[in-house]
Write a protein that binds this DNA or RNA. Structure first.
Lengths: 127, 127
DNA sequence: ACATTCTGCTTCGATTTTCGAAGCACTGGC
DNA sequence: GCCAGTGCTTCGAAAATCGAAGCAGAATGT
C-alpha cells in the first residue's frame, strides 16, 4: 500500500488541533468553527431540529458531502445529536454555543450600519 | 488571454457572499469568520497591536500567504487597520467583534468541562 | 400491488483554498 | 560594510470544498 488515507479529525478540547498543539479549549473551538458551514449549520438548527435534506436546503444547497462531514464533526463534538424522529438537533451544549451566535448576529447588524456610514472610498476597490 | 485570475472576494454586509445571495449581514459575517485563521487573528489582536511577523508567530507560524490574505480581508471589512507604527490593530468595529470572541472563549471552557464528564464511549472513535 | 417521491447518505472527479518554503527589498543596529 | 529583522510576494504541492450522480429504504399516492 502506498499511503494510509488518514481520516479527518474532529477538534476536541484538551487535544492538539490544526494550528495549535497546546490543547487549549478555545483553540479547538476556533478550529471547529473556522471550518466552512459550521457556524451556518448551528445557526439554522438554533430553533428547530431538521432532517438532512431540509437542513441542506436551508444552507443554500451546500454540498451534501461537506454537510455530512460537518454533521459528523458536530456530533463527535457533542454539539448536535440525532433525535428519535431522525432529525438533527442541538444538544444543550450546542444551544449554548448558538447563543454566542446570536451575539454575532447582532454584531453583524452593527457592522452593516457602520459600513453604510463609512465614506469608504471604494474607487479602486472590488469591482 | 485565457482566463482572468479573478481575485478572492472579501465578504461585505448587504452583498451576496459565498453560500448566500440574500445580502443579510449575518451571512457575510459567517462567510468571513468561517475562513480559517480569521477568528484566531482577531483573538490575537484583541488586546495589542502587532506587526506582521510577530502576529504570524502568535498564530503558531501560520502561512504568511494566508495571513496576508486574511489581513487584507479584515482591513477591507474594517475590522483591522494599519496604525502609524506599522502594526496591525483592531478598529472599534473589530474590538466589538472580539468581544463576541470572549463569549466563545468562555463557552469553550464549558465545552471542555462537559466533555470531561461525558462517558463518551470512545472505544472505536478516533485512534 | 405498484409506481412515485422523498429521504439519508456515499462516491468521485473537478475546483478552490490552504500550506510552506523560498526569495526580495527595505530598515535599523553595529 | 555586514547582519538580523522586518513586510510582503511567488509558486508548486497538499488539503478542503464542491457538485453532480447514484443508491437503498421509507413514506405516499392510486
Amino acid at each position: 500500500m502506498t499511503e494510509a488515507p488518514r481520516p479527518p479529525r474532529t477538534p476536541h478540547p484538551r487535544k492538539p488541533v490544526r494550528g495549535s498543539a497546546t490543547g487549549r479549549p478555545l483553540m479547538a473551538a476556533l478550529d471547529l468553527f473556522g471550518r466552512r458551514w459550521t457556524l451556518r449549520i448551528l445557526w439554522e438548527l438554533r430553533e428547530q431540529a431538521l432532517g438532512f435534506r431540509p437542513l441542506q436546503q436551508r444552507c443554500d444547497g451546500m454540498s451534501s458531502s461537506v454537510l455530512r462531514q460537518r454533521l459528523t464533526e458536530l456530533q463527535e463534538a457533542r454539539l448536535v445529536e440525532h433525535d428519535t424522529a431522525g432529525d438533527y438537533r442541538l444538544t444543550p451544549l450546542g444551544r449554548d454555543a448558538s447563543k454566542e451566535l446570536r451575539g454575532l448576529h447582532q454584531w453583524s447588524e452593527r457592522w452593516a450600519a457602520a459600513l453604510e456610514q463609512a465614506p469608504s472610498d471604494n474607487s479602486d476597490a472590488q469591482p
